[in-house]
């Protein structure tokens, strides 16, 4: 059979297609990399080290592309990004220490899995609930945010308003004219870093909603800034795994070729798709993700390997559903009367 980069043409095409799907989600939501790639590689029979390392290298490459794209759209807040990196790094270290302590007690595996399911499911239920509540035109933030435009106070979630009201110096001004205490940003970053270190995940699905719901950053800037941060964590993580041979370029290169195109489509869609239409699918994807983790954990507990495949099918199916919804909504917007001014950029 025809081979390229040491893998068959069929597998190569599958990786490119899979990358395309993930790229759309990554470009649109700023999350969905390691969450999708690593379980898929594990079920395909790659060793954990290679699945995690290659997943991280892929996340790194995709976040570089998506950050560049969001930067072009003026959707990266570097001041916020750097503050978040500092807070997240400290949180990651503390999270790792907690994991090591729980490992000594022999409780790490179960506690991490239960927390992961509760957190993913909780965020999914919350996002879905908010999206359903906002469906009557009440609240919600438009994706069409000008680079430094003031945002409407009605668009800021209540918790974020409360957090913004604490004027503990130094105060920083973020894109959209938001003023918030640096300490609050560091605290939110620390909490998200702690969870991400504890759960061993990139943390996009925690950080992006946290930036929006807790700090009040408009969704497109939350996505762009989250990607900027993932670029650093992904780069460092893949370097660490590559040192022990955990990064396989024959996996990463084709995945990246597909996701680069998908991320372009996903990022461009953020400027033309009404976020409220998609938020509900995003929430459902997280809920199905939580279910997938629970199914896999149950499979491990019961020794039923087939549940690994059910788990993978749930993850891939939900990803396909959400990516399809993003593309469908984008096409609907392009085809809507009076959308002549829409551009891909």
């Amino acid at each position: 059979m025809f081979e390229l980069f040491g893998i068959s043409a069929g597998l190569l095409a599958m990786f490119v297609g899979f990358g395309l799907l993930i790229g759309v989600l990554f470009g649109f939501f700023g999350m969905g990399g390691s969450f999708l790639v690593t379980p898929a590689l594990l079920v395909m029979g790659y060793p954990s080290r290679v699945a995690v390392g290659s997943g991280l290298a892929f996340v790194f490459g995709t976040s570089v592309i998506a950050t560049l794209k969001h930067r072009d759209l003026g959707q990266v807040d570097y001041k916020l990004g750097v503050s978040m990196i500092i807070g997240t790094t400290v949180g990651l270290e503390v999270g790792k220490e907690i994991v090591l302590y729980l490992e000594e007690l022999g409780l790490a595996g179960n506690i991490i899995s239960v927390t992961y399911v509760l957190l993913l499911g909780g965020i999914g239920a919350f996002v879905t609930y908010e999206a359903l509540k906002g469906g009557d035109g009440d609240g919600g933030v438009s994706h069409d945010v000008e680079e430094d435009a003031e945002i409407n106070a009605d668009d800021i979630p209540e918790i974020a308003k409360k957090i913004q009201s604490y004027s503990l110096p130094p105060m920083i001004t973020l894109r959209g004219g938001i003023q918030v205490s640096l300490w609050m940003v560091l605290l939110v970053a620390f909490a998200t870093g702690l969870l991400s270190g504890f759960l061993g995940v990139g943390g996009g699905f925690i950080r992006m909603p946290a930036l929006f719901y807790l700090i009040g950053v408009p969704v497109p800037i939350a996505v762009g800034t989250d990607l900027f941060e993932i670029m650093f964590s992904g780069g460092i993580g893949s370097f660490l795994y590559a040192q022990s041979g955990g990064v396989d370029l024959s996996i990463v290169a084709p995945l990246l070729a597909g996701s680069a195109l998908g991320a372009r489509v996903g990022s461009a869609a953020t400027s033309i798709v009404n976020e409220d239409e998609i938020k509900i699918y995003f929430g459902l994807m997280l809920l199905l993700g939580a279910l997938a983790v629970a199914v896999r954990q149950a499979g491990n507990y019961l020794g039923m390997g087939v549940l690994d495949y059910v788990s993978l099918a749930l993850i891939l199916g939900s990803a396909l559903m959400v990516a399809g919804a993003v593309i469908y909504s984008a096409l609907k917007s392009i085809r809507a009367p009076g959308s002549a001014g829409v551009t891909a950029d």
Binding site: I65, L68, L240, R264, A344
Partner: peptide, 28 residues
């Protein structure tokens, strides 16, 4: 080797970004 691998991924990402960007300008 680890640094080289991360470097290759970074270069591939940038080449893809520029390449797909040119494609988008041409046929977008």
């Amino acid at each position: 080797q680890a640094a080289a691998l991360v470097g290759v991924v970074l270069v591939e990402a940038m080449v893809l970004y520029v390449g797909y960007g040119a494609l988008e300008s041409a046929v977008g």
